[in-house]
Design a protein around this nucleic acid. Structure first.
Lengths: 111, 111
DNA sequence: GATAAAACAAAGGAGTCCTATGTATCGAAC
DNA sequence: GTTCGATACATAGGACTCCTTTGTTTTATC
């Protein structure tokens, strides 16, 4: 896939997933990879810095937790600010799709 | 609009427009701005370098033309290589939309 | 003839994502 | 019991796209 098109969708999808339940980094990447049939394969080098930045921006909060397995993982929780940002990003995403499709349909006809 | 989401759509839309008819730079920007109701407002600093790069990549060819008005404009024409690239980018765009929407629908329910 | 819009161009910078590398833990196989 | 792969987190460095800014020239308008 054209990787340039992915830009900006990373934070959108992370916030979307975290709005349902708290997850840890590796789990987020695995979930997206599975649910998109491998269309999205985020590298750790993309994911973790993005999570750190979103935490710095106050959109999410991460804290180490130790479940019954005995393994320590950093679970991320969405904040109120994060939910507001998600709302805006969802609207942007919808607008983008409509705008692009409007141009494409004019050129290639409605699908 | 979240400008990060725009990345990669620029070349897709340029190729899409040029696949119908040849246009000059300013015309492309004005068309996109109009057809998207102002959702896309490409700056010259984004458009022209992108056109130059696409020409360097052999996707389009630009040549000065002087119409009856007497004004000289650089019209860009799509190449065969450009049409092939457009095909791929269209597929990527469709895949991206489906993948993102699949994640979003799982989190927020189908719209 | 001054001003705004049309039309093209290039330099510099910001931001996002990828590649590569490193560390540590857990479970399974041998 | 130790070796190996998967799990899990982290950072540095670089590539790439797009934006901001600035500049020039031509055409139309007042």
């Amino acid at each position: 896939m054209d990787t340039e098109l992915l830009k900006g969708t990373l934070s959108l999808l992370i916030l979307s997933l975290l709005s349902r339940k708290s997850m840890y980094g590796y789990e987020i990447a695995a979930t997206v990879h599975r649910d998109t049939d491998g269309a999205f394969t985020w590298r750790e080098g993309s994911l973790y810095p993005s999570l750190h930045k979103m935490q710095a921006d106050g959109l999410i909060v991460g804290q180490w937790e130790e479940k019954e397995t005995g393994r320590k993982r950093r679970y991320y929780h969405i904040t109120e600010k994060g939910r507001a940002a998600l709302k805006g990003k969802l609207r942007s995403w919808t607008e983008l799709c409509q705008a692009v499709n409007r141009i494409l349909e004019k050129a290639h006809g409605p699908t």
